[in-house]
């Protein structure tokens, strides 16, 4: 899976947000808020083809958490990215 291109992280009112900036222009109707871990994963995996394990390993090396915790957190992050239509699967 891959993260959608054409998104920029902007700091707005003290929070980090993903803003769509594609061929159709800037879309402020679909802004996604990121906490620090979500932002870290977004920046680390941008432009790369990855699986769940990649996200888990990144969280373990960055935050020193257990494998179980990383699996839960990475899974939740991927789920939220899919829900916001920010992840492209190989079939897309």
């Amino acid at each position: 899976m891959k993260l959608r291109p054409n998104l920029t992280i902007r700091e707005i009112a003290g929070e980090k947000m993903l803003v769509i900036n594609g061929a159709a222009g800037v879309d402020l109707t679909k802004v996604v808020m990121l906490n620090s871990a979500a932002e870290f994963l977004w920046n680390s995996l941008q432009g790369k083809d990855f699986q769940n394990e990649c996200a888990e390993d990144l969280l373990i090396s960055k935050y020193g958490i257990t494998k179980e915790q990383a699996k839960t957190d990475a899974g939740a992050w991927i789920k939220s990215m899919i829900k916001a239509d920010l992840i492209i699967s190989p079939a897309d």
Partner: peptide, 28 residues
């Protein structure tokens, strides 16, 4: 969770987008 972007921040993003020739979609 829905979040409303403050007026002044939204205006900055809008003006930047327009200056670069892009259109910008906003919810009324």
């Amino acid at each position: 969770m829905k979040k409303i972007i403050p007026n002044i921040d939204a205006l900055n993003i809008i003006e930047e987008g327009l200056k670069s020739g892009s259109s910008v979609r906003i919810t009324v």
